[in-house]
Design a protein around this nucleic acid. Structure first.
Lengths: 214, 214
DNA sequence: GCAGTTACCGACCGTACGTTCGGTAGACCT
DNA sequence: AGGTCTACCGAACGTACGGTCGGTAACTGC
């Protein structure tokens, strides 16, 4: 799950709770475990003991790697948000006709969803209970505004179906994309490309696959 | 919020926690309060003290009206599910061309979302932590299957855009509809009809509003 | 005006939570 | 071999949780 640089060869072997030998944790690999459990049981519904059991480590050992439960959440949310904002910086997202930029951002968002599925899933479930969550919500709204501007511009160019209010279209587009996290499994029957094609087709209208700029 | 029959005129006035006079609670009006808080803070993130504070009642008084926290959740989820399943029983959902039945179910689902917004919102956030939640998830899946069958039938009739896999289309449709609960406010700028038109337009394609059967 | 019922209360209970602490086994370096 | 450091441990802490209990004020029916 971790997409960081490959760990240095000197990964220690340690004994976990049950006495078994396994590679030692670092904050990143522990985050992978935590996010999995957070998604399964919900952040509030996950106890540190739940995390410890899943990681086959003791509760107190977790604090050797991370500051606490909320720090795990913050790290996970930042990872998803950083990936999404990187899309906004891409050249294809900032230059050219709005409709092409929109198509690009939709497609790339779905690719991010594919690459960082658990982190984005967690992000989409945040409700703003704590300062950490509110901060994440604020950054997420900024991304939403970026896309909303693209939709408005494409609509003004006459490149979106005219019977659809741009603000409503933006909401429905996000609804579609975000719902993907509820059922999509990377490497499953549906590929990322099929997924992106489906969404783009619903939003913008069918295009001959050969002529689609990519 | 409650859509039950109007309460009998004999609604007692009682003194709440702060000494103020207000109408006495019954299980239904208390449910309204609880669901609001559940949505705001999440079910797991809501304590009975949170509910008590919002309802201006003491924690122990809540147990006079309902069996406990989970019973509140079950009642809320059942209310949303009962409303959705009632749609499946409607004549327009069971007779006629699949495309018309699909259009009807989509439109009615959005109307239910409008009428029972907080209850449906809660339903859409359930993750299956407890038996109550798993039960709700199972019923929700049954509703999903009902719609998936309609989409498949409409697609087989050639009435849906051909470039879209029916299974994928079903998921994206649900994604759109369900996402509505995240931002829609009844009585706000966007009306239920505009909303339903927007979704039907994205899914099935534009129709001259005059010719739309309704 | 009295009895019964209803809607409420504060105090309390056991449990489970997130976090802290003092310690230790073993890997690594010299 | 000795010293250091890292990844881990069990036990314990204070707190906050969902839920229980015995009581009471006030409204209703008679």
């Amino acid at each position: 799950m971790t997409t960081r640089l490959a760990a240095p060869a000197r990964a220690r072997l340690v004994r976990g709770r049950g006495g078994e030998r396994r590679p030692a944790y670092d904050p990143d690999s522990l985050l992978d475990v935590a996010v999995t459990v957070f998604i399964e049981r919900g952040y509030d519904g996950t106890s540190m003991e739940d995390l410890a059991r899943t990681a086959r480590i003791s509760k107190s050992s977790i604090y050797h790697h991370v500051a606490g439960k909320e720090a795990l959440l913050r790290a996970a949310l930042d990872r998803a948000l950083d990936a999404l904002f990187a899309v906004c910086e891409e050249e294809e997202s900032t230059a050219g006709p709005a409709i092409d930029r929109l198509r690009h951002v939709i497609r790339r968002s779905i690719e991010i969803l594919d690459q960082e599925l658990p982190y984005v899933t967690l992000l989409l479930r945040v409700r703003g209970n704590t300062a950490t969550e509110q901060n994440a919500l604020e950054r997420r709204r900024a991304f939403d505004r970026f896309v909303a501007n693209l939709v408005a511009a494409a609509s003004a160019d006459g490149d979106l179906r005219a019977d659809l209010d741009p603000a409503l279209a933006t909401r429905l587009i996000f609804g579609m994309i975000n719902s993907v996290s509820e059922w999509y499994h990377p490497g499953g029957e549906i590929t990322v490309d099929q997924l992106a094609d489906g969404v783009v087709s619903l939003v913008i209208g069918a295009q001959p696959p050969a002529g689609r700029p990519r």
